[in-house]
Amino acid sequence: MIRTLPCSPLYKAGYRVYIALFYIFLILPLITICVLAFNDSNFIALPWNGFSLDWFLADTDDRLGLFKDPDLLLSVWTSLQTGFFVALFSTIIGTIAALLFEEENFRGKGLLYFLALAPLVIPGVVLGISILLSSTYAGTYIEDNFGLDLEFLSPSFWLVVLGQFSFGATYVMLLVGARLKKFDRVLEEAAQSLRATQLEVIWLITIPFLRPAIIGAFVVAFLISFSNFNTTIFLIGSDPTLPVDLYSRIKFSSTPVLNAVSFMIVTFISLSAIISFVINRKKQ
């Protein structure tokens, strides 16, 4: 059953078939979308009517391709911007949180760490509505009492960023914290004995050590933001992010342009995954 133990050919073959079926199950929806993105048809599914690039490039009455659709391009741009800011804020605060929980000891640390992990066990929908409720409440309160209209407290671009950041920081904290656990404390002590202040130690010794994890966490936070729907849907203002836009198109006006967008996402993710895989392998 394991590499070193012999087992019957039937068992071995059966196991392999299962694994193959599993991978087919995994890849089937992705391949389907990618192929159908090039279908010369006005419907999202089969039959296959021949190859066409219409759903990328066309600009006719009944077909509007991905690159000619300003609404779709705008939602891609909104998602890219959202992802960038969410990744930036999450990386900063998540790293700070990792440093706080690994380096410092204080009363109530357990409770605070528990709270920082809470987004893992709060449904995304609940996070979305609770932030929506409290920010609208705060917004009305501030407007009534101080006459200030703070736009980011009502559903808008920045409220989406805040909402996604609230759980993005947790993932960064875990990724950076895992690397920090492998950090050799002797390095810090050495720097301290050479009279570096604690802040200098963190900035000059600890952060450079953490750099690969921080970069990785930034990418992860970006991807989490880019694909998030459950929290985002409650917080968007007038400009939808890509998942929200795709969702409303799937529900109300599905054309094969959806396949084209999906094709772009699938290709981009797969290529970046393979490139990073090759680079990592070369390093070893």
């Binding site: 929806p29 992705l30 979308i33 159908l36 959806l258 396949n259 699938v266 797969s270 895989f277």
Partner: peptide, 29 residues
Amino acid sequence: MVLLLLIPIWIGELVTIYGWMILLSDNGV
């Protein structure tokens, strides 16, 4: 093989669910 497992995660739920919608529909694959 582990890398292949990560790809659907990063592609995101909306796209993969949409893929299943096409697969399972009456005109589906």
